[in-house]
């Protein structure tokens, strides 16, 4: 009987230790920023969200990004309304998400500047597509700062631009990401 108790305590300790170890390999970024830029013949459009959420695990290399489409801020509110109502259909598809892996994520345990390939799938407007890009990571005092940029072709995500506004919205939009991760 006593033995069982000891084992349970041991089991509990081990579990909690493991739990801690797990936590220390995962980092969270609250208020990550995602911006995109569309440059067309008649108009440049820029929007930014500072309310994206991200988490990464340097042990497994898993990385996850999520952003509410309605959190993107535009210079012109009418554009923001059109973005949500006509293009992203934010009622139906409220969140855009990236799920991916960081190559050689193990190196991020030590302070330094790194460049690593990140590849995974991006879901926008209900359509999932594979993406890969190079990202930079700066590790200092167990704070990871990450930055990346990549291009998104609107047609790949079934976002259609009516011909009347074709000269105002680019077919390919540049996306920039900045995130600061802490434990």
């Amino acid at each position: 009987m006593k033995k069982i108790t000891i084992y349970s305590v041991f089991l509990f300790l081990l579990l909690s230790l493991e739990g801690f170890a797990q936590q220390s390999s995962s980092f969270i970024s609250k208020g990550a920023s995602i911006s995109f830029f569309s440059s067309a013949m008649l108009e440049d459009i820029e929007a930014k969200s500072n309310l994206a959420g991200s988490a990464l695990d340097i042990k497994t290399g898993d990385i996850l990004f999520r952003v509410k489409n309605t959190s993107f801020q535009f210079d012109k509110k009418l554009m923001q309304e059109h973005f949500n109502e006509n293009y992203m259909e934010s009622d139906k598809y409220p969140i855009s998400e990236f799920k991916g892996k960081i190559e050689n994520s193990g190196q991020l345990t030590k302070d330094g500047n790194y460049t690593a390939k990140v590849s995974g799938t991006l879901q926008i407007h209900g359509v999932t597509k594979a993406y890969a890009t190079m990202a930079t990571f700066i590790v200092k005092n167990s704070i990871i700062t990450a930055a990346a940029s990549f291009d998104v072709r609107l047609a790949d995500h079934k976002i259609t631009i009516p011909s009347v506004v074709g000269k105002k919205i680019a077919e390919v939009v540049k996306v920039k990401i900045n995130a600061t991760y802490k434990h």
Partner: peptide, 13 residues
């Protein structure tokens, strides 16, 4: 845990 963790860590407010 490792599988679910990242999912749970993100809080979009």
């Amino acid at each position: 845990f490792a599988q679910e963790d990242l999912d749970k860590l993100i809080d979009l407010g």
